[in-house]
């Protein structure tokens, strides 16, 4: 058995009086596609924001390739190869496609002894990037606000996948898209998997999860309800787990009355 790419052990997080996550465990292999499902406020997004460095957990441990990591911010997670595509894409509308892709990790060159942006190199790399990804975007020098929703997502995907990511987290990637754009997202996930990049997809749409994921984790009230291989389950069973918050194959497991 190889070392998993990511292990999260006993992650807990509370916001004031609200317990968002209670001793959650998650293990992910290289190139594995994991669907993370659950009702609103189940803790899916919080868990992923912890993994991507946007939040720090109150307790628990994160290991990347067997090494304990402490993500203080999204940069440290990104350095470890973990990228997140936010539900609203986190793009700056007035900046160009290129500027958004390279924001925070620009190519620089020296000019008159001053470190300046190598705009030409970044524009040309961004162009190649879109060709390789098979994503269509009108021009890398247009401001992002002039693009359609699907094109904006293409920019967010390009940004997350361009820098040797080992894990790409997608928060509701298909929530606000039309049919062709959804197909594009699925293609992207398949392509990432072929390149041995792991993907975690938070989604409300079970059909998306079933079409691309290897494994599904169901969460409710800040805890993991259960886990299934996609080949070994059906929509009905997952829906039951989401709604009831119990695992039908483990009827003995109660609601974990932890004294906290």
């Amino acid at each position: 058995m190889t070392v998993p790419f990511v292990e999260m052990h006993n992650i807990s997080k509370r916001f004031g009086a609200v317990v968002a996550l209670r001793r959650v465990n998650l293990i992910l292999q290289n190139g594995e596609v994991l669907g993370l499902v659950g009702d609103n406020a189940a803790g899916k997004s919080t868990l992923m924001k912890i993994l991507s460095g946007a939040y720090t957990p109150d307790a628990g441990e994160i290991l990347v390739e067997g090494t304990t990591m402490k993500f203080e911010n999204p940069i440290s997670a990104r350095t470890a190869g973990i990228e997140m595509i936010y539900q609203d894409y986190a793009l700056v509308p007035q900046l160009t496609v290129t500027q958004n892709i390279f924001l925070g990790r620009e190519h620089m060159r020296r000019r008159f002894g001053v470190a300046t942006l190598d705009n030409r190199r970044m524009d040309s790399e961004a162009g190649t990037m879109f060709q390789m990804l098979g994503l269509r975007v009108s021009s890398v020098t247009s401001p992002v606000q002039e693009l359609s929703g699907g094109q904006q997502q293409a920019v967010a995907i390009a940004r997350a996948t361009a820098f040797d990511a080992k894990l790409v987290i997608m928060d509701e990637p298909t929530a606000s898209l039309g049919v062709p754009a959804i197909a594009k997202v699925r293609e992207t996930i398949v392509r990432l998997k072929q390149n041995d990049v792991a993907v975690i997809m938070i989604s409300h749409r079970l059909e998306d999860v079933f079409s691309v994921a290897d494994r599904v984790i169901v969460m409710k009230h800040g805890q993991v309800v259960g886990m299934r291989d996609v080949s070994d389950t059906a929509t009905d069973e997952i829906v039951h787990m989401i709604v009831a918050g119990t695992d039908p194959r483990q009827p003995a497991a109660p609601d974990d009355p932890e004294p906290s």
Binding site: P74, A90, L91, P93, A115, T116, N119
Partner: peptide, 23 residues
Amino acid sequence: TKTRFGLYALAIGGREEAARLMG
């Protein structure tokens, strides 16, 4: 147009949260 500082000033003005998430 040519420096990180200028670009980051624009990014912050355009969408501060996105700028923050990008480090």
